[in-house]
């Protein structure tokens, strides 16, 4: 598969670098791509995050339903980072960021959403449907449940006071086979 060559670091040696680039051209699938962005952790940027990932995944020709799934999952993860990762009472006025990394590999989108906020004490508990630490803000507690429902895979890692990393993937174009 092309991605190994795609991620391979080119050497300082020119001939090897050239060879590497040729390999990259040959083996890289036309759809393979990568994006890294950091956005300011403010509610207004949740829409921006959704738009960025939507635009990134377009070359994979997702259906409207797949696109809506991805938008929702990204929205949930970014909203979590902004509300729970950087709670206002601790971070008011501070410039904090949410980091989004996207990678297309063949027909699969890999997306990583990261924050450097307070972290989650009990990830398993946090992922239970209807569980929320902020009922007063009318949070439904469905965020992780939606991410699980709409993506193929999800991995959540967290360390207290270090932040949360959510890694999700979704293969585009397999709905047809399923239904």
């Amino acid at each position: 598969m092309g991605h190994q060559a795609f991620w391979k670091k080119t050497d300082t040696d020119t001939s090897e670098k050239q060879a590497g680039e040729e390999l990259w051209e040959q083996e890289r699938n036309i759809r393979d791509n990568k994006m890294e962005v950091s956005i300011l952790a403010i509610p207004e940027n949740e829409q921006l995050a959704r738009m960025l990932v939507t635009a990134f995944v377009m070359p994979l020709n997702p259906t409207i339903e797949e696109l809506s799934d991805i938008k929702t999952a990204v929205s949930e993860a970014v909203t979590n980072a902004i509300i729970h990762g950087y709670p206002k009472e601790l971070f008011f006025g501070e410039e904090k960021y949410v980091h989004i990394t996207c990678r297309n590999e063949e027909h699969t989108l890999h997306v990583k959403i990261q924050d450097e906020g307070v972290g989650i004490e009990d990830v398993k508990k946090a992922m239970e449907p209807m569980y929320t630490t902020k009922p007063e803000l009318e949070r439904s507690g469905m965020g992780f449940a939606f991410m699980e429902a709409f993506m193929d895979g999800i991995l959540v890692k967290s360390k207290l006071q270090k932040g949360v990393t959510v890694i999700m993937n979704k293969t585009i174009g397999k709905e047809v086979c399923h239904e």
């Binding site: 929702t72 803000l137 009318e138 949070r139 439904s140 965020g143 449940a145 939606f146």
Partner: peptide, 13 residues
């Protein structure tokens, strides 16, 4: 055009 779990929260409220 779009709704996520925040919408669910506001409807439940």
């Amino acid at each position: 055009t779009f709704m996520d779990s925040s919408g669910v929260g506001v409807i439940m409220g």
